[in-house]
Design a protein around this nucleic acid. Structure first.
Lengths: 126, 126
DNA sequence: CACTAATTGCGAATGGTTCTCATTAGCGAC
DNA sequence: GTCGCTAATGAGAACCATTCGCAATTAGTG
């Protein structure tokens, strides 16, 4: 653990959720002006491999990252306002119990993503 | 519907599943040597917007596409051999019934993705 | 046919991510 | 401490999937 990595991991944790690499880079430079983008990406890879951080491919061209939480959680993506709503649900248990194809599968990670329109956007006509 | 689009949509349908843009381009050129990559991408966008095709961001740098099927389905991704296993399960129903955050959400699409190791790869020690 | 708008092919541009390489930091052995 | 070694860093160039710009072609309509 180097100075840069500690900083980056802290920023990811305190951000709460769904940082992208560039935003992380910007925040990191406020505290340590010389960190490089490469370091950000390298750290993200490392954290991902160590299981400290999870990578999400939402519908944009770049990725988002968030600190791994102990609890299994999933996402609702609103197509109207772009909001990301998190919720918890033991879907992996539901699936291993109810889906034959999944019975022999050793699960590392589970994510359900639902796209659609949140209640706000439904009211305002999409 | 132009000649190119018909060809591309047919190819996507007959492929069954999980084509990427480059593979589609290669197959298209076998039948129509002058189709361009741009046309492939433009057609994929169009099909996506029309709801004929769905785009998946698996763990690679590029996207995969498949013809929209009537049935809700999900994916298991094996980290060992890279295999993609599809299964069907009415998870959106399960979620709207059991998750408060999802109750007011108007769902357009649902996908569960589970990563891990398939039974084969578990046997051979990942 | 003739006209207009939409689509295509091609090559160049974009932009997020990865790589290269020279420099610097961390660290154990003397 | 300081020598030597390895791993990590910063900066910029390279990469590559995807998108754009534009001139040429094609569809579709009257």
């Amino acid at each position: 653990m180097t100075r840069q990595r500690t900083l980056l991991l802290d920023l990811i944790k305190e951000a709460g959720g769904h940082l992208d690499a560039d935003e992380l880079y910007r925040r990191a430079r406020e505290k340590q002006p010389r960190v490089s983008l490469s370091t950000v990406y390298r750290a993200l890879h490392l954290f991902k491999k160590m299981g400290l951080v999870e990578e999400y491919h939402f519908d944009e061209s770049h990725h988002h990252y968030e600190a791994t939480s102990k609890k299994e959680h999933h996402h609702l993506l609103c197509l109207g306002c772009g909001r990301v709503i998190e919720f918890q649900s033991p879907l992996s248990r539901y699936v291993t119990r109810n889906v034959p194809e999944a019975r022999d599968f050793h699960i590392v990670d589970t994510e359900l993503r639902m796209t659609g329109y949140c209640s706000n956007c439904r009211k305002t006509g999409q």
